[in-house]
Nucleic acid binder design. Structure first.
Lengths: 333, 333
DNA sequence: CAGCGGGCCGAAAAGGTTTTCACGAACGTC
DNA sequence: GACGTTCGTGAAAACCTTTTCGGCCCGCTG
């Protein structure tokens, strides 16, 4: 099965390539009967236009690059799906490249992508902290998840502060008053932001954190377990725990369960990320905060399209997160 | 920042485009001094060749398509990484498309990829069962993870039977004799194959499954928990459990822990998949079977390269899995 | 000194498509 | 019957690069 060219189609239809092109592309200056003949010829040869040649002359390759450092991670994939969705998949295909956290590999991929004449670039960081800008490029770029350090770039991020606030707000609405916060590495802006949001909301309510302060540590179940044990010792009457990630929340649940402390009737637990393999399967299923990453991906695609059409934006846009209610939280009584 | 063409480079270097091309591509028929001049000009203009044009004439786009139905899943990503790795990333870029289990979406993506003149295709199924062949295509195809139903195609799969055998073998070497197997949906060939491997190895040793038979159910923690409870009731002296997935294994561990049954001293537990967020974080960390998917991806890339160079293969190749020993198994005593 | 071969370089074709422009025919108008 | 429109079609240029082949200049050989 070999590839037919437009010339083959034209010959079979008895017209010139120019006419064939116009017929297939819906240009008006061709007689209906002729168009019909061309289309039939194309089908008969199962012709499909060579996108490379098209790109060469239209100066649009119909491709974008997705440059990430978080492939096996769970962030780039939803973003990719959202983006794939927003570009019609027949219009635009996406090159996926994983730099694996390595700057020179990133440069490498960048060169390759530019050489392939991608129409735009989406850059997804591995963590929500600011990352170095790629600088001035011949194609539009949007940074998603991790913002660029250059305000002239366009960055799309999730609202971690708002997420912390939402989580605590939900716990308060459940009637909880003694709320603790166990979270990950304090070196991550995500940890800091979520904690800030949580504390802000608590302060509005005239409350302070159970346990006195935020329990920073690591993004792991083990830390969730350890911190929970310490927390229970220092503060046995805690009635809600806001975990900075679903992994941590799993550790929290594990220890509560071990101590025969019922969730949610005695202690409510809320996670962060809505990583479904963790959140759905836990006992009980975990209320958590969803980052809305597919949405972020869709917006990234839209912004990219806009920029390709000449209306580029810049600055940082923050997108709201979403509360997912499951069974690990419930009103008191 | 706009894109320089080879003609710009040639003009700046004071040579013809032909010479410029040869200079940059290391062709011998150009004087060293001239080459030097061209290279400097190229750097100065930060020239990068237009891959579309190159592809047009060499008849090679330097791209491959990865068609999957398992994006948020954990299988395609390692395969993608392996493939990206095996193709030099500067030589070949990969288009990632997710059909989301939808046949017409798959057709759609396929059209788009062929239109983009990909040099080859890797098809990754969502589950290890046989899937329909894409049929005769103008480019080579390799099926990975899920084999094609057409023996004329080339399929690369993991050895699930061998995995079951390896798991049980490990438990036997740990001195266990009363080994149970809790696994997922019996409609998955993976479940059947793993079970068969396990039973085979048991039979060789003159043993039978603790609990009398394989506990088929669902691929979830909840099933792991439920099955374990039933198992303990029917067969309280079980000394090892082989779980058909890490998710199930998590459920198993959870109940054992709840029942204060020590792992691994009283019951050893082994999982399947080496899904690290589950396996590494569990208590204790989970011994499991790794599918070696990156390796599968690398081989897929190699087979594809070979096919592109004219030496196509067909049939089904099975690749061994790998035992990852952590702390949920240990010799008795 | 004629002829020849080797070393470097440039002109041109090729790859597949889109788009512009010119051309011819058919038709209507005066 | 001459002229102006409109409609449909085709020739050719353009996109950017690689590759073939011919040509030029030099130095060498006979």
């Amino acid at each position: 099965m070999s590839r037919a060219t437009l010339r083959d189609v034209a010959k079979l239809a008895g017209v010139s390539v120019a006419t064939a092109s116009k017929a297939l592309n819906g240009q008006p200056q061709v007689r209906a009967e002729t168009r019909e003949r061309v289309i039939r010829a194309a089908e008969q040869l199962s012709f499909s236009p060579n996108t490379l040649a098209q790109g060469l002359i239209t100066q649009r390759s119909g491709t974008v690059g997705l440059l990430t450092s978080d492939l096996e991670g769970r962030f780039s994939i939803p973003i990719l799906m959202g983006a794939e969705d927003a570009f019609g998949s027949d219009q635009t295909s996406v090159f996926l490249c994983d730099a694996r956290g390595d700057t020179i590999r990133e440069k490498h991929h960048l060169r390759a992508l530019l050489s392939r004449r991608v129409d735009g670039l989406i850059v997804v960081g591995a963590r929500p902290d600011t990352r170095p800008s790629l600088g001035d490029l011949p194609v539009p770029v949007v940074y998603a998840y991790a913002p660029s350090d250059d305000p002239a770039d366009l960055s799309l991020i999730t609202d971690n502060t708002g997420g912390g606030r939402t989580a605590v707000d939900h716990l308060i609405r459940c009637g909880r008053r003694r709320i603790a916060h166990i979270t990950g590495d304090p070196g991550y802006s995500a940890a800091q932001d979520r904690a800030r949001g949580a504390v802000d909301r608590l302060t509005e309510e005239g409350l302070t954190l159970a346990g006195g302060e935020v329990w920073f540590g690591m993004w792991s179940e083990a830390w969730g377990r350890g911190a929970t044990r310490m927390l229970l010792e220092r503060c046995p009457d805690v009635d809600a725990i806001f975990a900075g990630s679903d992994e941590i929340a799993r550790g929290v649940l594990d220890v509560l369960h071990e101590e025969r402390i019922d969730v949610p009737s005695r202690v409510a637990v809320i996670g962060f990320d809505n990583w479904s393999v963790l959140a759905v399967n836990s006992r009980p299923p975990l209320t958590t905060i969803d980052l809305n990453l597919e949405h972020l991906g869709r917006i990234a695609a839209q912004r990219l399209s806009a920029a390709m059409d000449g209306t580029a934006a810049s600055g940082v846009e923050t997108f709201p997160v979403r509360l997912i209610t499951r069974e690990s939280t419930a009103p008191l009584r």
